[in-house]
Design a protein around this nucleic acid. Structure first.
Lengths: 163, 163
DNA sequence: TCCCTCCACTTGCAATATGCAAGCAGATGG
DNA sequence: CCATCTGCTTGCATATTGCAAGTGGAGGGA
C-alpha cells in the first residue's frame, strides 16, 4: 500500500520522486555526461543549476537511493556520486523523454543528436547502455560495446559541424 | 535553436513543460480516466489536486498545446478538454514512468495493474492505445481493439478483489 | 610552519509556486 | 424567481526556487 504520498499510483509515485525541474537533469548529467562530483555537475551544467539546489538534490537523490555517494580517495573532501540500479533503470524513461522532446519542442540540433541515437537504437541499445552504466557505476564487468563512446562521439561531431 | 529556456537539450525542454508535480497527473487522468472536464478532474482526483492548481494547469497545458479546450454543447459554462497529438504521444513516456514506479516505489496493487498491462503489452499495445485515444480525442476512426476497456476492466477486477 | 587558494557546501533573502478555504458569477432546474 | 450547482478566482500562509555571498576545511608551495 502507499505509505506517505498522495496516492499509490505508480505514475504518481514516480512523479513524487522525480517530478521537479532538476532531479532528472542531475541524473542525466551523471548518466550521459559522466559527471561524478559536485564541482563537475555545477560547473559544466548546461542549464546553470544553482549551487544550493544541486546540493539539495544530491542529498535527496542519495537518500532516495537514486545516487550513491562515496569519498574520493584522492581528494579527501571530495565525494564521488554513482548511479544505482534504480537510476540506471531510468534509461528507458530518459530515452522517451528525449524522443518526445525532439518531436514536440525545439531542441538545438547538437543536443538532440544523442536523443536521436537512443531513440533509433530502441530497447536493445538501451539495454547495452544500461550494461555499460552498471560497469561504470556498479563495478560490473565491462560490456563488449561502448554505447557511451558512440553517443559522445556523435555529440562531438555535431558540435564540430556546428562550428 | 533553443528559444527561451535553460538549454536546448530535449530532455530539459520536456522537463520544462512537464517537470512539475501536477501536469502529468492531469494528463494521466484525462488519458486513462477519460476525465474531460474541470469538475471531473477535480472531484475524482486520487491525489486531491487543489482547484487553483488544476485551473492553472489546464490553462498552461492548453497554451502549450497539450490539451485542447472546447465548450460543451450540452452545458454552456462547461468546457471539454481533449488530448492533442502531442499529449497522445506521451503514452510511451507514461508507460515507462509506470513501469519504473512499479519496480522502484511501493505502489498499491490495484493502481499498478494498468501499469503492468501497459508494460507487458509493450510498444504494440501503446500504439493501439494511442490509436484509440486519437479516436476518443481527435475524432479519428474507431480502432478494432479497445485497450481502454481492457485497462479499465483489469483495474476494476483488481478493485473488486481488494474488496 | 605559515599562508594562499581551491572547493564542497551553507546561508540570507527575495521571488515564485503550492495548498487550503472561501468566494463569485453565470447556468441550470424546479 | 429562487435555490443550487459548477467552473473558476481570490486571499493568504507556507514551501520551494534562484541568486549572491560566505564558510571552513584541505592542498600545496615557500
Amino acid at each position: 500500500m502507499a505509505q506517505h504520498g498522495r496516492s499509490g499510483c505508480p505514475i504518481n509515485l514516480t512523479l513524487e520522486q522525480l517530478g521537479d525541474r532538476w532531479s532528472l537533469i542531475v541524473i542525466r548529467d551523471v548518466m550521459f555526461g559522466n559527471r561524478r562530483s559536485y564541482g563537475a555537475l555545477l560547473s559544466s551544467s548546461e542549464e546553470g543549476i544553482a549551487s544550493n539546489i544541486l546540493a539539495d538534490r544530491l542529498k535527496r537523490l542519495t537518500a532516495a537511493g537514486l545516487l550513491s555517494r562515496e569519498p574520493d580517495p584522492a581528494h579527501r573532501q571530495k565525494a564521488i556520486y554513482s548511479l544505482t540500479e534504480a537510476s540506471i533503470e531510468l534509461v528507458p524513461l530518459l530515452a522517451q523523454m528525449g524522443a518526445w522532446g525532439r518531436r514536440h519542442t525545439r531542441p538545438s540540433r547538437e543536443l538532440s543528436v544523442r536523443a536521436g541515437l537512443l531513440e533509433d537504437g530502441g530497447p536493445p541499445l538501451w539495454e547495452a547502455f544500461m550494461d555499460e552504466l552498471r560497469h561504470l557505476h556498479l563495478a560490473a564487468p565491462p560490456p563488449e560495446r561502448s554505447v557511451f563512446v558512440e553517443l559522445q562521439a556523435a555529440y562531438e561531431t555535431a558540435m564540430a559541424e556546428k562550428g
